[in-house]
Write a protein that binds this DNA or RNA. Structure first.
Lengths: 216, 216
DNA sequence: AGCGTTTGACTGACTGTTCAATCTAACGAG
DNA sequence: CTCGTTAGATTGAACAGTCAGTCAAACGCT
């Protein structure tokens, strides 16, 4: 079997190109319908080389899922740091869940989540990666809330972890519906539901539903 | 191509057997990894006949998903009718979402939902079926709430549709985590989150978290 | 030369679908 | 009642396409 291999620096770029290509293809066609040859073509190499790098199709795809989600959190984390206003921060979290496309992130990471979930159901490797990724996502939310408490925006008696858990769950549910383009759960409604939930749970003063005017 | 075919009554039994087998296999192995030959073997027929009945693998699997979800709602609807107490009814809804296995339902319909979602992302047929199924599920929840208003358990000013939408979204998110066996979102926690949400939104008197003692 | 990297042709296994042949049961004419 | 006819149901094998993974040869650094 082809042993996973290279460590030089030029190779790292090629590796990333393959992961990027794989992530894109998974989100376009789904995990099961992503072929090695397609990944190779989009990354501008040969399928033999893809196997040379990753050893097996499953490992390639699993790594691609991880790569994509990681770049998502990195981008999210960076953008949050640029904004100190608590309400605005909260709105950002909601926005990302209910309207796709985060700058710097892999294109169309929406389908990726749903695919990640159904794949995790059967692949232990993916299951563990998902748990880890989700925990990191919750940490991020928790951190924001805790900083909200420090700045006095959030009631001090809120259990931050518990809130992070339930809030991310709500966001999961909403984003699923939005991703599946459900006719009843529009992007706007999803935003409202999430913000109302947070306002109630955190004891926030009720504010405008959206900071920027609705796109129409 | 093989045109979908038979109309006699004895055939209906065989048809159901194939759908049942397919649904089981999808939930075990996933949509993409379910082979016609396997479905045929489990249903006790030949793969040729499966194609004879459904014309194509995709149609078979799509029909199987629909079949499974329909039997789920039928069972749910029946069980709800046997129970008139509002709080108990609510608890049943939550229980079904956070702990699998509904009597009379296809085994392990959990994986099916996640697979349904990721498949719906790419297959228009499945997407429409999902929308329809979800709408039916929300109708069920809405009906329960409206009856709760009539019996005086639920505040009269609650928007029933809006609640049905947001509540089912919460249940979706919770059931996803439970299905994926997330270490932080235990079945008990999921139950608490859902009930608290409902209590607040519906203006219910706070009650015991669970009616039956926790399984340990 | 020597090494890691890269290629792309190739293989071997798998699987959806087709198809000709067989079986079953209902039916109607004699 | 019986037997040939027929239409639908069922089978099993063959077909044709697809793809993950292998391999021997070529490449291009150092």
């Amino acid at each position: 079997m082809a042993e996973a291999a290279p460590q030089t620096e030029g190779n790292e770029a090629r590796r990333r190109a393959m992961l990027q290509a794989a992530a894109e293809l998974i989100s376009e066609r789904g995990y099961g319908d992503t072929r090695i040859a397609d990944v190779a073509k989009r990354a501008g190499t040969s399928s033999g080389l893809v196997i040379y790098y990753f050893g097996t199709r499953d490992r390639l795809l699993v790594d691609a899922l991880r790569f994509s989600e990681e770049s998502y959190y990195d981008a999210a984390s960076r953008l949050l740091d640029e904004q100190r206003d608590f309400r605005r921060r909260l709105s950002m979290l909601v926005e990302w869940s209910c309207v796709p496309e985060l700058p710097g992130e892999v294109h169309g990471s929406w389908g990726l989540w749903l695919d990640l979930w159904s794949t995790a159901l059967r692949h232990p490797e993916v299951r563990e990666a998902r748990v880890e990724l989700d925990s990191r996502w919750r940490d991020l939310v928790e951190r924001i809330v805790r900083e909200g408490q420090e700045s006095g925006d959030v009631r001090a008696d809120v259990g931050t972890r518990r809130f992070a858990l339930s809030f991310t769950v709500v966001l999961d549910g909403l984003s699923t519906q939005v991703a599946l383009d459900d006719p009843e759960i529009t992007s706007d409604l999803a935003h409202d539901i999430a913000m109302e939930y947070a306002e109630h749970e955190l004891g926030l003063a009720k504010g405008p539903r959206r900071l920027k005017p609705r796109k129409r």
